Amino acid sequence: MITNPGGFHVTQASDPQRISLYLTSHGWSPHEEEGGTLWIAHDESYDVFVPRHRQMRGYLSHIGTLLKTLSVAEGRSEAKISLEISISDADVQYVHTDPEADPGTTPIDEGVRAFESLRQWVLSGAVFASAERPKVVQPARKPARALEFMRNVRLGPTFEGSYILTAYIPIPPRIGQTEIEVDDPFVRAASQPFERRVSLKLREATKEAVVAADEVIQRREGIEAFTRRAEKGVNANLCEALTGFTTREGGEACIDFSWALSRPVTQVAPITLNRDQVTVLKQAAQEMRAAAPEDDVTVVGAVVRLHREGAFGPGEISIAGIIEGSANERLRRIWLDLAEDDYSQATRAHDNGATVSVTGSLVRRGNRYFLKNPSTFTVRPDAP
């Protein structure tokens, strides 16, 4: 867990439901009173009053008194308690990106890369939790459930100590929950809400990817160390995301998990990444992409090269474009073969500077991308 939380979310920490959840999880007992609830500590040595709603006169004054009382009762700072209240209904992933950097800072390019990797990492867990069957390369077109889930994930503040990124995954509480017990969701994962399953699969997949990297380093295993763990969420997308948590020059990263108080879990050890593991993860991602195509990929872009033998028949083209629906909008050059009619359309699009789209299976060979089994080649009327 983070030991130096810095600032805290005043709005979230003053939410009555989050405060009640926090007090319940720490053994306080509620007693209804006019205008709110009086909470009494388990040893009856302290009590705090929580107004029923924020609009009540003097609400923030009551919250200030509550935090001071909790600080004395627990022997911890108000800032630390406020932070825990603000995230009491969420699973939180903390990613320490550079332990050797100046506290709370990182080079801007590295920071942008780390935030994008954080998004890709969480998305890989959501896609895995949504998929009917695991793949070593996740599809470019993500499941609707995974995309809907990502709309609810929130970035938290960064912290000092190293440059620490946080992702908040809201977890729905159990209906009618009046007591909180530590659960073992790893045993009964199927009964957990989707949001918690994503958190669990993220941790399992990340741990397994690191173990696979160690097997490659220590036992000289091949890519099978990764592909046989596809059932546990190890795939090229996850491995690529993990490599973005360290600096380009090397270094280490650490991933820590905190679980929502509404569905508490026994604390687990953080997962660390060292320079050698990151090197292996990067290579593994490349090999998995080279060995397994991304199915149902739609490429959108401009025709930049045409080639065929003779004046008629099929031919080869290349498109400079993006993968539609992919979170990675980097421009790629993609090669493909087209039948005669589609090649004629591509020629006209090239001459007119028009945008085209085509669907197929994306394969990477070395530094080149190829689209196999292309279909639905279309010249789009709109500009890119």
Rank of each mutant, 00 (worst) to 15 (best):
E221V: 05
N352F: 14
I63D: 04
K207Y: 13
R333S: 00
T106Y: 11
Y343L: 10
I217E: 02
S71N: 09
T206E: 03
V234Q: 04
Q17K: 15
S20C: 12
Q345A: 07
P374A: 11
V92S: 01
L238A: 00
G111D: 00
P51W: 08
D47Q: 14
Q345E: 04
P139D: 04
T246K: 03
P51L: 09
K135N: 07
E84A: 07
P173T: 12
V297M: 03
K372E: 14
K68P: 03
R203S: 11
A73I: 05
P381I: 11
Y369W: 05
P293M: 05
I171Y: 07
V304G: 11
A253Q: 04
H96I: 07
F257E: 10
V187T: 11
T3P: 00
E100D: 07
I180E: 05
S82V: 12
V95E: 01
S162L: 10
L336T: 06
L21N: 00
G313N: 07
G313H: 10
P134H: 10
Q120H: 11
Q283C: 05
T272N: 13
L281P: 01
R275N: 09
R174W: 01
G6K: 13
I334P: 02
R197C: 05
F115E: 14
V356W: 03
L338H: 00
E204Y: 07
T69M: 01
M288T: 04
T166P: 01
G366F: 05
A129N: 09
A292N: 04
S25F: 03
R52C: 14
N328T: 08
